[in-house]
């Protein structure tokens, strides 16, 4: 498009001024080409550097996450919304809650919830372990968040004495000394830990479900979490109750009930029997 004459002149001279001998038609054509090039350059640079809004619409999901998304779109989308962004007044956004939270809620049957109430109850899980893993993978890939370590035995190397001390400091306020659970305000409650698995306890500590505070790795190190799980699983669940029937481990309230229902009732019958013998 440029002439031999142009080529012989230097670049600066070419930018500074045009040779007067160029035709009007050629000048017009050159301007149009330069404008087009500038627009293409600017648009291209913008495309490269600007955050791609439409890039999130179709994330590169792994196959497990894609399976999880399919499950999510059937069972969870009603409350948690499209792409797990939450529905006002129905369910919270799941962006950033992590795989740990999904595994806790789904594997313990709390999610999908039966109804809107103060707190979801544990029930038989709706999804298999495989499906739970897929759902967790989907939520994880969607927004990141805390994840569980691998394996089903998360109390490996845990020390029950240390675990007991940590349990009494961190857990017994709500879950009670025997891990049987306790009441919180307005119908909320700390559930019994007896049906919980290692992974569920670990996940609960990591994600802080419902009213539970989060015990991240900077509050309780992974080895301390293992200690606590070991104490719950090996001591509290397998304590032989050396004193006999444990009355549900509810503390003095059931003991008071027992002294009237067993002790006083038995002895009042004894008084009736003795007085009847005169």
């Amino acid at each position: 498009m440029t002439s031999d004459n142009d080529r012989r002149r230097g670049l600066l001279a070419r930018l500074r001024g045009r040779p007067a001998a160029r035709s009007r038609g050629r000048r017009r054509l050159g301007a149009a080409v330069r404008l087009l090039a500038a627009l293409t350059l600017a648009g291209g640079a913008y495309t490269v550097f600007a955050p791609g809004a439409q890039a999130q619409d179709a994330p590169p999901l792994s196959s497990a996450a894609a399976e999880g998304k399919a499950l999510f779109d059937v069972s969870c989308v009603t409350c948690h919304g499209r792409n797990a962004q939450g529905v006002e007044g129905r369910g919270p956004s799941l962006i950033g809650v992590g795989a740990a939270s999904v595994e806790f809620q789904v594997s313990s049957g709390r999610m999908p919830a039966t109804r809107q109430e103060a707190q979801a109850h544990r029930k038989p899980p709706l999804f298999t372990d495989e499906q739970t893993r897929q759902l967790a993978q989907y939520i994880q890939e969607l927004g990141g968040g805390p994840e569980l370590p691998q394996g089903t035995n998360l109390r490996e190397g845990g020390d029950i004495a240390t675990g007991g001390e940590l349990f009494r400091i961190n857990c017994s306020q709500c879950h009670a000394f025997g891990a049987g659970g306790g009441a919180l305000s307005s119908g909320k409650f700390a559930p019994s830990l007896r049906p919980a698995s290692d992974r569920q306890i670990y996940a609960a500590m990591l994600s802080g479900p419902q009213n539970m505070p989060v015990f991240g790795d900077n509050q309780l190190r992974p080895d301390q979490k293992a200690d606590i799980i070991a104490y719950i699983q090996e001591t509290l669940k397998h304590d032989q109750d050396p004193g006999g029937f444990n009355l549900g481990r509810y503390g003095p309230s059931t003991e008071g009930l027992a002294i009237f229902l067993v002790g006083i009732v038995a002895l009042v019958f004894a008084t009736l029997w003795i007085a009847g013998k005169s």
Binding site: S172, A176, F177, A190, G251, P252
Partner: peptide, 14 residues
Amino acid sequence: WVVSAASQPDWYVM
């Protein structure tokens, strides 16, 4: 710093 849920006294103090 240790306290448990369901901390009750014996029945006659309850």
